[in-house]
């Protein structure tokens, strides 16, 4: 059953045109020209209860704008949004009770106070019962290790600690939906891993629906089964991550280290795309030629020291989609 439904949503902003230079600045002080910017053009999707969905796209693609419309901060220019049966911007306060929000870049906690005080204030703001508060605090303390910094003022926390505190704070009132806007930004490898484990766990144990935006493809690969990819305010892909890998992951790379350096390496079905000393990168399409066939061809004439076959990471697939567009890529993948 869909818990979030987005239908033909569009969001325009009017932006003042700025002119450069002193004269330009003076001119725009007197008379300003506005231009329309379409942050989100026409996006539709629906998300079922209990899903973890990666909402990704390059900077300025409209990710945050969409999240803001789902949380009720912004009103869409047109289209329909339904979150947990409510229109977020019409029932903003009611909607707030059923969502948790974490903005990775900005803490929601009381900056100058010991961390525990933020939790206690949020308990009051969300009217969380003592019993529920205690249950949640116990669980989060155990999984996130909150006790090591509960008495430290938020401004003195490390980024990793602050993110842990922020995500715990967003879940105190047991929301069925959690929005995470770049939850792992700036974290080190260990802290990222902790964060991912926690997100997975609450999704699994509590059936919380999670929508996360991120630039870290590892987040997507480790957490989500489904991703929605947007670019220039439009949806370019919506589906399983396995699917996109299956479709675009046909082009593999064989990396070989040869004993001797060659003038050129000619292979049937493969193409050398890069060479460095005795190391060669050979691109091939899995459907046309198998890796073992290629290796056989090479070993027939050369002695091989070492070799590996590389599957493209989701990261490189997505950066190709950003650069070449999804449609073009579909065509080239078929060929």
């Amino acid at each position: 059953m869909p818990i979030i439904e987005v239908e033909n949503v569009r969001k325009d902003f009017m932006i003042a045109k700025r002119e450069t230079g002193m004269m330009g600045a003076l001119k725009s002080l007197i008379k300003r020209e506005y231009m329309r910017k379409e942050a989100v053009k026409d996006i539709s999707f629906s998300i079922n209860e209990g899903e973890i969905v990666g909402y990704i796209g390059p900077n300025g693609a409209g990710k945050s704008t969409t999240i803001k419309m789902l949380t009720g901060i912004l009103v869409p220019s047109s289209g329909n949004v339904l979150v947990n049966g409510l229109v977020p911007y019409e029932n903003r306060q009611e909607n707030a009770k059923s969502i948790g929000v974490v903005f990775g870049q900005r803490s929601q906690l009381w900056w100058d106070l010991p961390t525990i005080e933020s939790f206690e204030l949020l308990k009051e703001i969300y009217q969380v019962s003592n019993q529920c508060y205690k249950k949640n605090m116990d669980t989060f303390t155990e999984i996130l290790g909150l006790d090591e910094f509960l008495n430290t003022p938020v401004r003195q926390l490390s980024l990793g600690q602050r993110m842990r505190a922020d995500i715990a704070a967003s879940l105190l009132h047991d929301p069925p939906i959690l929005f995470l806007d770049e939850p792992t930004i700036g974290l080190d490898v260990v802290a990222k891993e902790k964060m991912r484990t926690f997100i997975k766990e609450i999704n699994h144990e509590r059936k919380i629906t999670v929508i996360l935006t991120t630039h870290d493809m590892e987040d997507i690969e480790k957490l989500c089964e489904r991703m929605i990819l947007i670019d220039h305010g439009m949806k370019v892909y919506d589906g399983e991550i396995a699917m996109i890998k299956e479709r675009f992951g046909k082009i593999r790379t064989l990396i070989v280290d040869l004993e001797e350096s060659l003038h050129s390496l000619q292979l049937l079905g493969g193409e050398v795309c890069k060479e460095e000393g005795n190391r060669y990168w050979i691109k091939f399409n899995r459907d046309e030629v198998s890796a073992s066939e290629l290796i056989a061809q090479i070993t027939k004439t050369h002695s091989v020291k070492d070799l590996t076959v590389e599957e493209p990471a989701i990261e490189s697939i997505i950066s190709r989609i950003y650069q070449e567009g999804y449609k073009d890529l579909q065509v080239s993948a078929k060929v």
Binding site: T71, I73, E94, V101, R106, Q108, Y126
Partner: peptide
């Protein structure tokens, strides 16, 4: 924005 994601 934080004032807008809370139920008060």
């Amino acid at each position: 924005d934080r004032f807008l994601v809370r139920p008060i």
